[in-house]
């Protein structure tokens, strides 16, 4: 994912898409749904956090694999910073979710399967950070956290996408609910939602890119 630190054009796209998301997300007409009412607009802000998190984590796994095959510590830096931003997105997703749930489901935490799974997923990644902090040798740290990262991602997918669908959940797309289909019917939402996902994911990539470059700078300084 060298484009994160080599290219700039997508940063302009990020700014454009997020501006569009705010304007379109707040002003365009939305379906009048009971319970959700006007909060359906959160779709363009809460849900992209999770999409962004998963894409950043996937990038991170890519670099973990690259580290394991090349033993290049730079790959480990990429992997680490992508996880840092991914976790930030996850935390924002869970907090915004609780605020939204307080309005629609009556309480911030209703032990909804997807909520719990998301919390577990975040704990797994917190453990990743603690694991990194507890190892001092650079190559050992990089190797162990790369392997951990691959397994963490392998657990994340069933946690977020499979297990919550097996039981009843308040989230759409669970317990036989039609997922986004119910909303997808409305082309007005789609018009903003997809650009929002791209915009927020690029924003995460941008922040991660800056963090990677700072880490690389430090890395070069230390190895001088």
């Amino acid at each position: 994912m060298n484009f994160l630190i080599r290219t700039n054009w997508w940063k302009w796209l990020t700014m454009f898409l997020l501006t569009y998301t705010v304007v379109g997300g707040l002003l365009f007409t939305v379906p009048r749904l009971p319970i959700l009412n006007e909060t359906i607009r959160n779709l363009h802000f809460h849900v992209p956090m999770w999409f962004g998190m998963i894409i950043l984590f996937a990038f991170s796994v890519f670099h973990s694999v690259k580290y394991l095959s090349s033993k290049d510590l730079v790959q480990d830096l990429f992997s680490k910073e992508l996880i840092n931003v991914g976790v930030l997105f996850g935390i924002l997703g869970i907090i915004t979710g609780m605020i939204w749930a307080n309005f629609t489901w009556g309480e911030p935490w209703s032990n909804d399967p997807k909520q719990n799974a998301a919390a577990v997923a975040l704990l797994i990644y917190f453990a990743y950070m603690i694991l990194r902090g507890s190892l001092s040798d650079d190559h050992q740290k990089a190797r162990i956290s790369a392997i951990y990262n691959i397994f963490a991602f392998a657990v994340l997918i069933p946690l977020l996408f499979i297990l919550p669908r097996l039981t009843d959940s308040l989230h759409p797309g669970s317990g036989g609910n039609p997922g986004f289909n119910a909303y997808d019917l409305d082309s007005n939402l789609r018009l903003v939602f997809y650009p929002a996902v791209v915009g927020w994911t690029f924003l995460g990539s941008w922040i991660a890119g800056i963090m990677i470059r700072v880490s690389l700078y430090q890395f070069k300084k230390d190895s001088e």
Binding site: K11, L18, V23, L26, L27, W206, I210, R213, Y217
Partner: peptide, 30 residues
């Protein structure tokens, strides 16, 4: 509301661009 959120968003963009330029300068020095 739109105006307030947009101004905050632009503030974040501005800071990100500045950070981006700063790290580019450091990379050049190295």
């Amino acid at each position: 509301v739109v105006a307030v959120i947009l101004i905050i968003l632009f503030g974040i963009f501005f800071t990100l661009i500045r950070l981006d330029k700063k790290i580019t300068r450091l990379e050049k020095e190295v």
